[in-house]
C-alpha cells in the first residue's frame, strides 16, 4: 500500500516536472515577448484607427488614416524603394553568403578561421558605425575613394549625391555589413550535410558541380529559406544605415518606409497615421515571407 502511494506521488512529481517546469522555463521569454512585442503590436493596430499624437486628445477616426495612405504619394515612393532595396539586398546577400559559406566551410583549409572572422567582423559593428565609416569613404568632397580618384587624375564620383548611384551605394554597404552574419547560418547548414552523401556521389562519378546542384543545394534549402526570411525582415526594417549615409536622399531616392514612419511619428507628431503605415509594412513583410515559404519552403530529410 505504502509503495503504491509513493509511486503515485512520484508520478505526480513527474507530471509537475514534465508540464509545469517547461512552462516556467519559457515564462520569462514569453512575458518579455508578450509585453514588448504582442501588446505594442495590438496597441499600434489600435492607434492606426485613431488621430493620435503625443500631447493632444486621441480620437477614433475609423479607416481615415488608411484611406489617406492610399493617396499619399511619398508613402508609395518609399514602398517602391523598400521593395527594390529588399529584393536586391536579399538576393545578393543570399548569393554572397552562400558563396562565402561554400568557400569557407572546409575546416582543413589553411587560415579558414581568419577568413571567417574577417567576413564576420563587419556584422558585429552597429549599422550607425558602418554608415558613418562608409560616409567618410564615399563622401563627394571628403571621401577617401574620391580623394584617391582625384589623386590619380580622375573626376570624383557622386556616390551618395546622385540618384543613380545613391541606392546602389547603400545596397553595397548593406551587403558588406551583413554577409558575414548570414554566412555563419549558411556554414551551419553546410556542415550539417552528411559527408557520406558526397563520398557516395564521388564513387558514382559526380563532379563538384553535380554534387553542388544535386546534394548541397537541395539539402541547404531550409537554410537558404531561413536566410532569405531573416534578410527580408531586416531589409524591410532598415533604418540606421540609410539615415546616417543619405538621410533618405537625394530627394526620396533612398528613403524607405521605416524612415517615413519615423518622420511622420516623431517629427510630424502624427502617431496614428504612422501606425497605419506600420500596419501596412507588417502586411507587406508577412506577404513576402509567405511567398518565400511557398517558393523555397519544402523540407528535405537527410535520412
Amino acid at each position: 500500500m505504502k509503495s503504491i502511494r509513493l509511486e503515485s506521488r512520484s508520478a505526480s512529481r513527474g507530471n509537475f516536472h514534465q508540464l509545469l517546469a517547461p512552462l516556467l522555463f519559457i515564462a520569462p521569454a514569453f512575458f518579455i515577448f508578450f509585453w514588448f512585442i504582442i501588446v505594442p503590436a495590438f496597441q499600434g493596430l489600435r492607434m492606426s484607427f485613431m488621430d493620435y499624437s503625443f500631447f493632444s486628445e486621441s480620437t477614433f477616426v475609423g479607416i481615415q488614416n488608411f484611406s489617406r495612405l492610399m493617396s499619399d504619394k511619398v508613402f508609395w515612393i518609399t514602398v517602391k524603394n523598400t521593395i527594390y532595396y529588399s529584393f536586391i539586398t536579399v538576393a545578393l546577400l543570399t548569393i554572397f553568403s552562400l558563396i562565402a559559406g561554400l568557400l569557407l566551410h572546409d575546416n582543413t583549409l589553411k587560415g579558414v578561421k581568419v577568413f571567417r572572422a574577417s567576413m564576420y567582423i563587419p556584422s558585429l559593428l552597429s549599422m550607425i558605425t558602418v554608415g558613418i565609416a562608409w560616409r567618410f569613404i564615399l563622401g563627394d568632397q571628403m571621401g577617401i575613394v574620391n580623394y584617391l580618384l582625384r589623386t590619380f587624375g580622375h573626376d570624383g564620383m557622386q556616390w551618395l549625391t546622385s540618384r543613380s548611384t545613391a541606392m546602389s551605394s547603400v545596397i553595397f554597404v548593406s551587403i558588406w555589413a551583413q554577409t558575414g552574419y548570414y554566412m555563419v547560418i549558411m556554414l551551419s547548414g553546410l556542415q550539417a550535410i552528411p559527408h557520406e552523401l558526397y563520398e557516395a556521389a564521388e564513387i558514382d562519378g559526380a563532379n563538384s558541380l553535380n554534387a553542388f546542384w544535386h546534394i548541397t543545394l537541395p539539402l541547404l534549402k531550409s537554410t537558404v529559406l531561413a536566410v532569405m526570411v531573416l534578410a527580408t525582415i531586416a531589409s524591410f526594417k532598415a533604418y540606421e544605415l540609410i539615415s546616417v549615409m543619405t538621410q533618405g536622399g537625394p530627394g526620396y531616392s533612398t528613403k524607405l518606409i521605416v524612415q517615413q514612419i519615423y518622420q511622420v511619428a516623431f517629427t510630424e507628431d502624427r502617431l496614428g497615421y504612422a501606425s497605419s503605415m506600420s500596419v501596412v509594412l507588417m502586411i507587406i513583410i508577412g506577404l513576402f515571407t509567405l511567398l518565400q515559404f511557398r517558393i523555397v519552403g519544402s523540407e528535405y530529410d537527410y535520412e
Binding site: 563627394d140 568632397q141 571628403m142 551618395l160 543619405t246 536622399g249
Partner: peptide, 20 residues
C-alpha cells in the same frame, strides 16, 4: 555651392574646415 551638402548630407562645417 557643393551638391554634396543638400543632396548628399556631407557636413558643411567639415567642408569649411577642410578648405573646400
Amino acid at each position: 555651392i557643393p551638391e554634396s551638402v543638400w543632396l548628399g548630407s556631407e557636413n558643411p562645417a567639415e567642408l569649411f574646415q577642410a578648405g573646400v
